[in-house]
Design a protein around this nucleic acid. Structure first.
Length: 646
DNA sequence: TTAGGGTTAG
């Protein structure tokens, strides 16, 4: 929220309300009468032209002052245009206002292109009230005046007002151009509005303009309609890198990493040079799918942009999210410029890999010599405390975040605190915190507490919590699954059956657990109980070998992690074929000396697989990295970086 | 004189 938007709400009036209002003059200003020498009028006008073009601004203003005191004007109105540009490049809003006053005085109203230029200047300086006053008083306006104001309102997140202004513009009979549409589109925050504006784009024949198309693509994606976004891209061949990047960025941002990378390859095949923005999107796509090797290939292209901050941040995130912390730390050290995102990414990265103490140490360094922490930084800090079991540190930062960093705790911060207290077994305190929240607790927060109820085996509280979740999100499959797990832990089989019945009755199905890993250019996916992998026979043999080896070290299947009321042998067998275990066996079969096995999961890792992975890392002398949706587990020499606390 | 694409959490 910009400082202007708090105080400024434009009022829009119907057509015909505008009346010419003369601007106040500033001819009484004593500062404008200090000229001592008396150059000839021609000399003054000539030097004004020269100074407006090349500066310095102060001299140009002094001559403007002399011109005004002698009732002279520039030879060419374009001189004033140059002067306004000079004010903009000097960042001098007061000088701009002075020029405005000069143009408005002397009975000569500025020409429209000069008014528009002044409008643009005010907008650029964030002085929207000044811009609005000027716009309001203009005797006539053209498409540029309207577009400038519409765009300014959108920048202030006043999208509704911007669209209203657009409607008034059309009602005034002003024909929008491609500039207007690329702005107006950014103001569409619902699919309905977007489709209406899209029709308007067609009717005015601007659907081929690259600026308009990239805005259309971008806004379709951000309104959740990636299909229409792709259609806009695909309906004609595109020779503009930004349009390519809009669609690649859209897919990368909204969870279709494969599609984004496919388009990235198509773009390169079409002969385009991938520049910073495209490479950043491609990296984001790799990060989303934890395609480390693909990301490393892109890293090579990034080298020539090694000083680009955003690109480095994306790279940092890739290495953090793929659990390659050494590489991330090395990039972080080398980055010539670091912003709050760089620091926050690194802090969260350390936290997710179980290095909570180091994350807090880095946060202390950030406080001493880095940028001011923001909302997300504190989420990372609390996450670090929660996953490292640092209850007191977490309490301290949560209590003092407002005072120390002027950040109000938001639902994510509460979520971390509930997680922190819940993990530490302080379920009552976590519940009390939720009840005391100023905000309305969302389903995520309740789900966090439900997770803690499972770890600390509390079916009574779990029932209450599940009830709260289902009030908010009646179709939440995760809630049913967790509740049934909690009942299964407590061996309350009739309750398990009841939950399953309700699920069946409501048509709710469990999302299957998937584990996957990259091997060369392929991704291998493993789902519990699914034996369709072409190398399944080998995987079964390898798994049996690993189970034999780990049994010697005391591995015994922990059947608490099986949901159903099966016999012991059946339970053990269903544990053997969890996706993680099949992926570990497959990873061992195809492993390269010295390289860790990297596995990704769509659900949290189960306790039995966690114990198994620890032992395999010891018997086989192999590092295993498993990423679940929340954090990393680095298994090495029989222990895990999470310290069995997750 | 007005317009488009990239990075951090859960």
């Amino acid at each position: 929220m910009n400082r202007f938007s708090r105080h400024f709400r434009p009022k829009l009036y119907p057509r015909g309300w505008l009346l010419y209002r003369p601007f106040s003059t500033s001819s009484n200003n004593p500062h404008l009468h200090h000229q001592t020498s008396k150059p000839s009028p021609n000399q003054l006008v000539d030097s004004f032209t020269r100074l407006c073009l090349h500066g310095p601004l102060a001299d140009a203003l002094a001559v403007l002052d002399s011109l005004e005191s002698r009732s002279l004007h520039a030879a060419d109105p374009v001189d004033y245009l140059h002067l306004i540009k000079l004010c903009i490049s000097a960042g001098d809003a007061d000088a701009g206002r002075l020029v405005h006053r000069h143009l408005a005085s002397g009975g000569r109203f500025p020409m429209l292109f000069l008014s528009n230029s002044l409008l643009g200047m005010y907008v650029r300086f964030g002085l929207v009230q000044d811009a609005w006053k000027l716009f309001d008083g203009l005797p006539q306006r053209n498409v540029v005046s309207w577009t400038t104001m519409i765009s300014a309102l959108i920048d202030l997140e006043l999208k509704k007002d911007a669209l209203e202004l657009f409607a008034f513009m059309l009602r005034d009979g002003i024909r929008p151009n491609m500039f207007t549409f690329s702005s107006v589109l950014r103001g569409c925050d619902s699919l309905r509005t977007l489709k209406a504006v899209h029709c308007c784009v067609f009717n005015h024949g601007f659907n081929t303009d690259v600026f308009v198309r990239s805005s259309l693509i971008d806004v379709y994606f951000s309104n959740g309609d990636s299909e229409s976004g792709y259609l806009v891209f695909d309906e004609m061949s595109t020779w503009d890198p930004v349009v390519w990047n809009s669609v690649i960025g859209g897919f990368a941002q909204f969870g279709h990493g494969c599609k984004a990378l496919e388009l990235f390859r198509r773009m390169k095949r079409a002969g385009f040079l991938a520049e910073q923005a495209t490479l950043t999107s491609a990296l984001r796509a790799c990060t989303g799918m934890v395609y480390l090797e693909m990301g490393q290939q892109i890293h090579v292209h990034v080298l020539k942009y090694e000083t680009d901050l955003i690109l480095n941040n994306a790279l940092l995130d890739l290495y953090c999210k793929s659990g390659t912390l050494e590489e991330a730390e090395s990039i972080f050290q080398r980055m010539p410029e670091k912003d709050v995102i760089s620091w926050s990414t690194m802090i969260s990265g350390l936290a997710q890999s179980g290095r909570g103490l180091e994350a807090l140490k880095l946060f202390k360094l950030m406080k001493a010599q880095g940028p001011k922490p923001n909302y997300i930084t504190i989420v990372g800090v609390l996450f670090a405390c929660s996953h490292a079991g640092l209850v007191e540190d977490g309490r301290y930062y949560f209590r003092s975040m407002k005072q120390l960093f002027d950040i109000e705790p938001g639902s994510e911060h509460y979520g971390c605190m509930v997680d922190l207290l819940g993990r530490a077994g302080k379920l009552d305190e976590a519940l009390k915190l939720i009840h005391e929240m100023k905000l309305k607790p969302d389903a995520i927060i309740w789900r966090t507490l439900l997770g803690a109820c499972r770890v600390h085996k509390n079916p009574t509280l779990a029932e209450y919590v599940a009830d709260e979740i289902l009030k908010l999100e009646p179709g939440d499959e995760g809630c049913y699954i967790l509740l049934s797990n909690i009942y299964a832990d407590a061996k309350q089989w009739s309750d398990v059956a009841q939950v399953r019945n309700v699920m069946r009755g409501r048509g709710i199905r469990k999302e299957p657990g998937r584990s996957w890993m990259e091997l060369g250019k392929e991704t291998h996916v493993f789902i519990a109980g699914d034996f369709s992998h072409p190398q399944m026979e080998g995987i079964k043999l390898e798994l049996e070998r690993l189970i034999r080896r780990t049994s010697d070290l005391g591995y015994a299947p922990d059947t608490d992690y099986v949901l159903h009321d099966l016999g012991r042998e059946q339970k053990e067998e269903s544990l053997w074929y969890h996706g993680e275990k099949m992926a570990i066996a497959f990873g061992m079969m195809n492993s390269t000396q010295g390289k860790p096995i990297r596995i990704m999961k769509n659900l949290r890792i189960c306790g039995d697989c966690h114990a198994f992975a620890k032992l395999v890392s010891r018997t086989e002398g192999k590092m295993i990295v498993i990423r679940d949706p929340v954090r990393f587990h680095h298994f090495c020499e029989g222990t895990c970086s999470c310290g069995d606390y997750w």
